[in-house]
Design a protein around this nucleic acid. Structure first.
Length: 567
DNA sequence: GCCGTTTTCGGCCCGACTGTTTTCAGTCG
């Protein structure tokens, strides 16, 4: 059973316990769920090793439940809870304004089990007749049902960043804004984003709230208060804005950046030190000690600074208390990009256009890696075409000063693990990227074999988008990661962090896992046009979320050292 | 149900906004 599946069931147990008004246990189950989700190993392996109880938030009881779940494929405790409340809790919770308490009342009094029941009851005005719920609540429920019905999609980080930056720039136009910062999961660079969180310093909160809620891109005002407002933007994304005084800016920035679990844990750390942490600062006996910057809060708590990308309560707080947070790779530390396409296959720009754009971004080197033979859909090149293209790459390389253009290909790994271009051609190229483009359903063993057999080819330098996942489209194929990691080290073949917004593959969790194993990685954009080159930052963000330092990433190396490594 | 630089028992993050139960509970982040 997969980690995500186990985590999901633990979370559902927490939901159901909340329905039952059980205190504290829901939090324990949620904590355990996060622990499983952020695990860099296979949960089944941890179970085999008998080390479930060593995971944070997992004790005697939850460990037993996870064991039962893995061994039998089901869990009696969970099934019994579900029988007690045979309702579609997940969809009902998705209705804005409905929480466990209200859902329970609706079920007990009106037998509402799902969105259809809810809609019928609201239309017949049954809800306003209940004690405690009125006309407004009923109207709000009715209005929000259609939003809950829509598949609640999170949005890709790469597409949300420009929207959030626009919004920030709009706010900057107000003369009442002293400072504005994008916070929330965007600042943590999570791969998908639900809403855009903004923090503003101002002396005139009311003016800012008016400005924000009246902004052109707003289609609906959800809530509006003195210090906090929520709106829906025309892109169908929610945006929260919070205003704060300067003396509390750091505390608010930390609070609003999250994650929620990180905040909870940080506040516990404060309590243990006799302090209180909230969005206004760090307090002792009711007096603010610090709060203007995040740095001083971490320092006062005896911790080193934790970069936003790490703030998931996945071990970073403990590490910071011990001063063991690594220095993450910086956003300006990559020297080049080793996977991109041109018009020679399915790219939109010429080699020269790609090279000039890359130089404009400050790269020292790039590799042109067009598709090969069998990938007809992408105009894959045969061996003769590759030789012709090599000449053009050499010419561009000479023409453009200050940028090295490397000769490469992205070869296809076939269903048996063989490559579609002969070794005698591959050995003349600077960079050989190999990847799987079909046969995703072959199963773990076969797919692992295919990748490993490609890695065994001495000409192959990089395995691109190693798990083939596409965010919100398809899960990555299941690989035996330990074998792949071992082979990566043995053969000096580097796994890619693909920066394309819907790939980010390897993902943050697998990056961490690979690094713990001792692998080195490469961050590439897989650009198919010059506009894609800027996505490199998304790959770097993913690396940082996986705790990567500069030393872990081969394209942070200068060209000479890189070529030596690839030779 | 978990956990320990107060603790193996007794705690478990904190505040803003909304609607409605005129003093607060529920929801959200």
């Amino acid at each position: 059973m997969k980690n995500l599946k186990v985590a999901k069931i633990l979370n559902e147990i927490a939901d159901l316990l909340e329905l039952k008004d059980v205190e504290f246990k829901p939090r324990a189950y949620r904590k355990a769920a996060i622990s499983v989700k952020s695990l860099s190993k296979d949960i089944e392996e941890v179970k085999e090793e008998g080390k479930l109880k060593e995971l944070p938030g997992i004790g005697e009881n939850i460990a037993k439940k996870i064991e039962e779940l893995i061994n039998t494929g089901s869990l009696k405790y969970y099934e019994d809870l579900k029988k007690e409340f045979p309702i579609d809790f997940e969809s009902l919770l998705a209705v804005e304004g409905l929480g466990p308490k209200t859902i329970k009342i609706l079920y007990k009094k009106l037998s509402i089990k799902n969105l259809d029941d809810l809609e019928r009851a609201a239309k017949k005005h049954k809800i306003r007749e209940l004690g405690g719920l009125g006309k407004k609540t009923e109207e709000k429920i009715l209005a929000n049902i259609k939003f809950a019905r829509k598949k609640k999609e999170r949005n890709l980080l790469g597409y949300i960043i420009p929207i959030s930056e626009n919004l920030r720039n709009e706010l900057k136009k107000s003369k009442f804004v002293d400072k504005v910062e994008i916070t929330g999961s965007i600042r943590r660079k999570k791969e998908t984003i639900r809403d855009i969180d903004l923090l503003v310093i101002t002396k005139k909160p009311e003016k800012i709230m008016d400005f924000f809620t009246n902004y052109d891109g707003v289609i609906r005002v959800v809530t509006k208060g003195k210090s906090k407002s929520t709106v829906k933007l025309k892109e169908d994304i929610q945006s929260d804005l919070r205003v704060i005084e300067r003396k509390s800016f750091g505390a608010a920035l930390m609070y609003f950046t999250g994650s929620k679990e990180f905040n909870v844990e940080m506040r516990s750390v404060a309590i243990k030190k006799g302090l209180k942490l909230n969005e206004y600062g760090l307090f002792k006996d009711g007096k603010q000690k610090v709060g203007k910057t995040e740095e001083e809060i971490f320092q006062r708590l005896g911790m080193t600074y934790i970069e936003p990308e790490l703030r998931e309560n996945g071990g970073e707080i403990e590490a910071a208390l011990e001063g063991k947070i690594p220095k993450l790779i910086g956003y300006n530390e990559l020297k080049g990009d080793l996977q991109m396409h041109s018009k020679w296959s399915d790219g939109s720009h010429t080699i020269e256009e790609m090279a000039k754009a890359a130089k404009g971004l400050g790269h020292d080197y790039i590799a042109i890696t067009d598709h090969t033979d069998t990938l007809r859909i992408a105009k894959g090149m045969d061996e003769k075409t590759i030789r012709k293209q090599m000449k053009e790459i050499e010419e561009v390389d000479e023409r453009i000063e200050g940028l090295t253009v490397l000769k490469g290909v992205e070869v296809n790994i076939d269903s048996e693990g063989k490559l579609d271009i002969k070794d005698k051609v591959l050995k003349n190229l600077d960079v050989v990227v190999a990847s799987i483009h079909s046969g995703f359903r072959q199963g773990k063993e076969k797919l692992t074999k295919r990748i490993i057999s490609a890695m065994d080819n001495e000409n192959v330098d990089i395995i691109a988008h190693p798990t083939g996942r596409k965010i919100q489209e398809r899960a990555g194929y299941d690989l035996d990661f330990e074998k792949v990691f071992e082979k990566s080290i043995e053969t000096n073949t580097f796994l890619e962090i693909n920066s394309y917004p819907n790939r980010l593959d390897l993902n943050d969790i697998n990056v961490k896992r690979a690094l713990e194993f001792g692998c080195k990685l490469v961050i590439n954009t897989d650009s198919h046009s010059i506009e894609h080159l800027r996505y490199l930052n998304l790959g770097i963000a993913t690396a940082r979320r996986g705790w990567a330092t500069k030393d872990n990433i081969i394209n942070a190396l200068p060209i000479k050292k890189l070529l030596k490594l690839l030779s």
